[in-house]
Design a protein around this nucleic acid. Structure first.
Lengths: 229, 229
DNA sequence: CGCAAAATTGAACCCAATCAATGTTCGTGG
DNA sequence: CCACGAACATTGATTGGGTTCAATTTTGCG
C-alpha cells in the first residue's frame, strides 16, 4: 500500500488513536483493492475474512431471500462495513456490491479482533463506528417504512441539493435505475414519482433536476434530522 | 436496589468483566423501575439521560413521522436499548414503550460514557452488545422487507414452537393485537393470515395454535438463520 | 446513422391498510 | 353466578401504494 494511502487510513477516526505497533500489525496484511461497478463484494451467510472499508465510490448493502432482494443501506466513503460480523466472528447477514467503481480497504478479520482485544483506544473507536452504523441503519429503516416512495424521492432531492451547494439545481450522478434502487423503488415508479413531484415544486429533465419551489418541496418531503441525518 | 438484583446485573455479559469500583460507580446511581404495560419509556429526538436495560417484560422500539408509526424492534430480557445514542451522546432516533408490565434498569448516561472511557473491559462488552443489537435490527428489517405478512406469521409460529418445547402446540402469551404489532401488520390482517395458514399445516382456535403439518409450514415459511436468528 | 440500453407510459394485479359491521371474550358488579 | 359492557377479534368491502408485464420512446454511443 502507498504511504499516502496509509496516512489516509491512519487519519480515520477508527485508527487515529491506535498505537503504532498495533496499527502496523493491522495494516501490514491489509489489501487495498479496486473494483468496477456492480461487482459482488461479500455474500450473506459467509464468515468474514476481512473488515471492509469503503475508501472510494459507493457500496450497496442488500439481502436476498427466496428470490426477493432488498436494499439495506448505501455507503459512501469513508465507512466500514460488516464490522459487527467481524467483531462477533459470525456470518454476514447482508451482501454487498459496488454501485460505482470503488476502492475497498480490507483488513484481516482475525487481526482486527486481536487488536480490538489488546488496544483499548481501538475498542472505543470501534464502538463509535458501530454506533454510527447502527444509527444509519435505523434511519434507513425509518425512511423506508415511514415515507411513501415519492416522499423519499423528495427528501433525497433536498439532501442532494444541500450536498451540491444548495443552488436549487441538482445533477444526477448515477443512472436512474441505480437511484431507484437506492430509494427502494422500481425504475418505473421513480419515473412516475418524478412527474408527480411536478406538483410539488420540482421540474426535471433527463439528469437535471431543478427545485422551482423549495417551500412546496419541503412541505411535501417533511425533511427531519431524525431520518435524513 | 436489592442485592439479588445487583448480582443479576453483575452477571450480564455487559458488566461481568467491569472492575468492582467502576461497577459500583455505575450502579450506585442506577434506578430499577417498574412500569405497567403500554407506557412510553423514551421519545425520539430527546437526548439520553439513562442507558435502559430491559430486565423483565417486553419493550417495543418504534418511530413516528407525520402521523405514521412503525415498529423497529421488540426487545425481550435481558437487553440494553438506546445504547448507541448514549455512547454517542446524540438524540434518540426511536421511541420505546412497554408492551407488558416491565422492569427497567436505568443507568445514568454520563456515567456509562465515563466508565466506557476508563474501563477497557466495559468498552469491549459494549461493542459486543452493540454489535448484537445491530444484527438484531438488520434481521428485523429483513424479516419485514423480504417476507409477506403471512410468511412472517408462519416463521413466528415455528420459532415460538421451538421456544415452547417443539410439541407442535403453541400458546399465545400476549393478545393478538400485540402479536400483530410485533409482526408488523394490522389485527385484521393477522386474523386473515391465521385462516390463510390453514392451507399450510396450521389449525388455530383462540389462543391455541396447532402445527398439524410441520413440513408444509416450513416449506411456506422458509425459516433461515439469516433472518430468524 | 443505427442499435442497444435506459427511461417512460399504460394496464392489470397484489398485498396490505382502512373503514364498517358483527361476533366473541372476559372482567366486573349486581 | 349470571348479566352486562368494553375491549378484543373476525369478516366483508373498499381503497391505495406499489410492482409487474408489456409496449414505446428516448438517450447515448460506437
Amino acid at each position: 500500500m502507498r504511504l499516502s494511502e496509509l496516512n489516509l487510513i491512519r487519519n480515520l477516526p477508527l485508527f487515529h488513536e491506535v498505537t503504532e505497533p498495533q496499527f502496523e500489525y493491522l495494516t501490514e496484511a491489509a489489501l487495498l483493492q479496486r473494483f468496477p461497478a456492480r461487482v459482488d463484494l461479500i455474500s450473506e451467510g459467509v464468515l468474514p475474512d476481512f473488515l471492509h472499508i469503503v475508501v472510494d465510490g459507493s457500496v450497496e448493502l442488500f439481502s436476498t431471500h427466496e428470490g426477493r432482494e432488498t436494499t439495506i443501506d448505501i455507503l459512501q466513503p469513508i465507512t466500514t462495513f460488516i464490522l459487527a460480523a467481524v467483531i462477533r466472528d459470525e456470518v454476514y447477514l447482508k451482501s454487498a456490491r459496488s454501485l460505482t467503481e470503488t476502492r475497498i480497504l480490507m483488513l484481516p478479520a482475525e487481526r482486527v479482533r486481536e487488536v480490538f482485544s489488546r488496544d483499548a483506544a481501538f475498542a472505543r473507536a470501534v464502538v463509535n463506528e458501530l454506533a454510527m452504523r447502527y444509527r444509519s441503519v435505523v434511519r434507513a429503516l425509518k425512511n423506508e417504512k415511514l415515507r411513501t416512495s415519492s416522499e423519499r424521492l423528495a427528501a433525497w432531492i433536498l439532501k442532494a441539493n444541500d450536498q451540491q451547494g444548495g443552488t436549487g439545481h441538482v445533477a444526477l450522478t448515477c443512472d436512474k435505475r441505480t437511484l431507484a434502487s437506492q430509494l427502494g423503488m422500481t425504475p418505473e415508479n421513480l419515473s412516475r414519482n418524478f412527474s408527480l413531484l411536478a406538483k410539488h415544486g420540482i421540474r426535471s429533465n433527463g439528469r437535471e433536476i431543478v427545485i422551482e419551489n423549495r417551500a412546496a418541496l419541503v412541505s411535501y418531503a417533511h425533511p427531519t434530522s431524525l431520518i435524513d441525518g
